[in-house]
Computed example of a mutant assay.
Amino acid sequence: MAGREDGGGGAGAMEEGRDAGRQPRYESSEDGGGGSDRCSGGNDMMSVQFMQKIIAEILGTYFMIFAGCGSVVVNLSTAGTVTFPGICAVWGLVVMVLVYSVGHISGAHFNPAVTVAFATCGRFPWKQVPSYAVAQVLGSTLASLTLRVVFGGATAREHFFGTAPSGSDAQAVALEFLISFYLMFVVSGVATDNRAIGELAGLAVGATVLLNVLFAGPITGASMNPARTLGPAIVAGRYRSIWVYVVGPVCGTVAGAWAYNLVRFTDKPLREITKSGSFLRSARING
């Protein structure tokens, strides 16, 4: 769900995968800045590079859901063999592995909420958001279909691997907001700030997912990701409280991204920052 722009050692891959120096790109790195209108010709919606990004998002989301939700199904169908801590570890590890695998291609979002959050900060082109979101939901749905086929029809009825609140919807949406905020705050730090330790980006994001699932899993399922919830829901036809897993993660990730923009370090004096029409924009571009 997160990575760095040029893989493990570069800067800002969660924003968008890129082939630095060989093709025009959307300026989204820490030293690039720029708004969503600075998208160059290299991001043509019909280009080979863009199609590669979409395929990477489909495959990445597919394997994330297949492994993560697969661990849930196996645990349910084998009387708890995997265990809850094991499920948490699977989610964290699969996210970490996939960040290092395709972060340099697509940015390794695997999450419509993350894509939207980057777009609101001007670090991802808005015109690519719908394509990314469709790819992510498609990957999740295909993975859910695969799990249903592999484990039989009983998966949809007895071994539901989607997410549903164990308490009230209000409690669930608040918790999803908080854990999504935390996830995106970490992602923004390791993916948009060149001073972060790039080689550890995947590890940091994977560990954050693991901690969130460990903490919030028993209450909400710790989705943090509309695609993670929508795929299993579509396959099983179970849409109870589905709005919780759209509103909570999207609002949480947007807030988390902007919160990091607020604390992003800048060595400019306050009087110079406030000359800008937007303090947040100035802090983002000049930090």
Rank of each mutant, 00 (worst) to 15 (best):
G217E: 09
H104D: 11
T229W: 13
G32L: 06
S106W: 03
S166F: 00
G86C: 04
E272R: 06
G92D: 03
I219M: 09
F160H: 08
V102G: 04
R238T: 01
G9Y: 14
I219Q: 12
H104C: 07
L76M: 14
F63H: 10
R264K: 15
A79V: 02
A207F: 15
Q49A: 15
T208D: 02
G277C: 10
N261M: 11
H159M: 06
I273P: 06
T192F: 10
S47M: 06
G256K: 08
M96H: 06
R281W: 04
G252W: 09
A67N: 11
G41V: 10
E15N: 13
S28Q: 03
G153F: 00
R284Q: 08
S166Y: 01
E158H: 14
L200F: 13
I197E: 13
G107C: 07
V263P: 04
K53M: 07
N194S: 12
T81Q: 15
S144L: 02
R157F: 11
F181T: 04
A2W: 12
T146I: 03
G221N: 12
D169R: 13
V95R: 09
E57P: 06
G107R: 02
G70H: 06
M96V: 00
S223I: 05
I197V: 15
G162F: 02
E16P: 02
V72K: 05
H104L: 05
G206Q: 10
I105T: 02
T220P: 14
S106I: 05
T141R: 03
V263M: 13
G162W: 00
V247Y: 10
L147N: 14
R238S: 12
S36V: 05
A67M: 15
L214S: 14
V209D: 09
F161D: 08
L178Q: 00
Y26I: 00
F63E: 07
W126R: 05
N212H: 08
K53E: 06
V129L: 01
S282V: 13
A79I: 07
R240I: 09
I105C: 03
V235M: 09
D44P: 02
L262K: 02
S29I: 00
R284L: 07
S278P: 15
Y26K: 01
N212E: 14
G35F: 03
A79H: 15
V82H: 03
P85I: 12
V213D: 05
L262M: 10
A79T: 14
G70W: 07
S223M: 08
G42D: 01
I273S: 00
S241C: 12
A283M: 15
R264A: 13
M51T: 08
L262G: 09
P249Q: 04
A133K: 11
R25K: 04
G139M: 12
A259F: 15
G12T: 06
S40A: 01
F66R: 09
A170R: 14
S278V: 01
V95E: 11
G248W: 05
K268Q: 14
